[in-house]
Amino acid sequence: MLLVLAVTLTAFGVGCSDRTETTAEADGTEPAGINKEVTMPIEAVTTTVVDPGAEPRSPLRRTLEPGISQQVTLSTDHHIEQQINQQALRDISPPAITIPITAQSGNDGVELTLGNVTSPDPTLAKALLPADGSHVGFDVSDLGAITALKLAPAPATSDSGRAALEQAFYQAVYQSIAFPNEAVGVGAVWTVRQQVSGSVPLEQVTTCTLTARDGNQLAIQLNVVQTPKSTVWHLPNEAGQLEIVDYLMHGTGTIAVDLGLPLPVSGSVQVGGNQTYRDPRSSVTLRQTLRTEVQWGA
C-alpha cells in the first residue's frame, strides 16, 4: 500500500485532469489519444464584485479581432516533496518547462502554436524536441474565462512530452483570470470561484484586485485559496480511499494584461502549501509539500 500511496499521490500532486485516454498496450495497438486532438472541459467560474473601485468605471472586456497575434513565453515549475510515515523526505518534483508561444485570436477562442519547448532536465528536454509546432486551443467566454483546453501535440511527440505539455497548460488555465460582469475602476476587488477537477475535487477562490489601468493595460494582483470539497479521496482504478487529514494551499501573484491581446503579457502566480493523507486500513500517513509557479513573459 505504501507504493500505491506514493505513486497515486505523486500523480495527483502533478495536477493532471480527469481526462482519460484508452490505451491498448496489451495488443500493441496505438493508444487512442496519440496524434489526435484531446479536449478537456474546464469548470465554469462564478465572479462576484466585492468592491467596484474608483471612478471612472467601465467593463473589462478583451477587444480581440480575429487574427490578432501575440508572442509570449509560458514557464511552469512544480515542486513536490513527500514523506511516508517517518521515512526520509523525498523530492519527487517533475522538471520545469519553458514554452515559447505564438497566440492568434479566432472567432471562438485562442489558437496557440508552440515553439522550441525546453527543460533543464536533459531527458525531458530531448522528449520535448518533437513538440515544436504543436497546437493548443483555448475556448474563451465573454468574460475571459477559459471554458475548454484543446491539445494537439505534433505527431512525433512522446508520451512524456505530451504529459509535460498537458500539465503545464492545465496549471496555466487554472491560474488564468476571469473578469466581472459589472463595470469596475482602479482598486476594484472581485472573486473568481471555480472547481478544479482532479482526483480530489477542489474549490478554488481567487481574489483579484485591479491595482492599475492605463487604457487597455491592466495590472491585477491575485490571491488564491484552494480547499478540498470532500474529506475523502477515492483513489484511481478502485485502489481504495484516503482520509484527507489536512489540506492547505494558498498563493499570490501579479499579472499584466492587455485587453487587446489574447494572453497575459507578463507576471507570475505561485501556489503552495501542505497536504496530509492517511490510509484508514493501515494508518499509513503521507505528507506532501507542494509549490507550483506559472510565469508569463517575453
Rank of each mutant, 00 (worst) to 15 (best):
R287C: 10
R62L: 09
Q195N: 11
S134P: 05
T113Y: 01
V38A: 11
P41A: 04
Q175D: 13
T191P: 10
T29R: 12
W233E: 03
P153Y: 11
I146T: 15
A219L: 13
S93I: 11
L210S: 05
Q171E: 07
L3V: 12
A172H: 11
S105Y: 14
R62P: 07
L124D: 08
H250T: 03
A172D: 10
V173K: 08
G106E: 08
A188N: 08
R162I: 15
H135Y: 07
A131Q: 11
A44T: 12
G53Q: 01
R62F: 03
I99R: 11
L235C: 09
C16N: 15
P180Q: 03
E43H: 13
A152H: 14
D246V: 06
Q171K: 14
R281C: 08
V224K: 07
T211P: 06
A24T: 12
A163G: 02
L286G: 00
L129R: 14
G133L: 08
Q221A: 09
H78K: 11
T8R: 11
E81A: 06
N274W: 08
Q275G: 00
A127V: 10
D108K: 14
G215Q: 01
T206R: 10
D214R: 13
K229I: 03
E55P: 03
A172C: 13
P120S: 14
T8A: 06
D91I: 06
N274E: 05
T39I: 08
I80Y: 04
W296G: 11
E243L: 01
L218C: 11
S75I: 10
Q295D: 04
V271C: 03
T289F: 01
S58P: 02
A152N: 13
T8M: 06
N116T: 11
A152C: 06
V205I: 15
D246A: 02
L290H: 01
G137P: 07
A178I: 07
S58M: 06
V184S: 05
G67V: 13
I68N: 15
A239R: 09
E238I: 09
E238F: 07
G53R: 02
M1F: 06
E37S: 12
A256E: 10
V196H: 14
I68D: 07
D214Q: 09
F169G: 07
S197K: 10
Q171L: 10
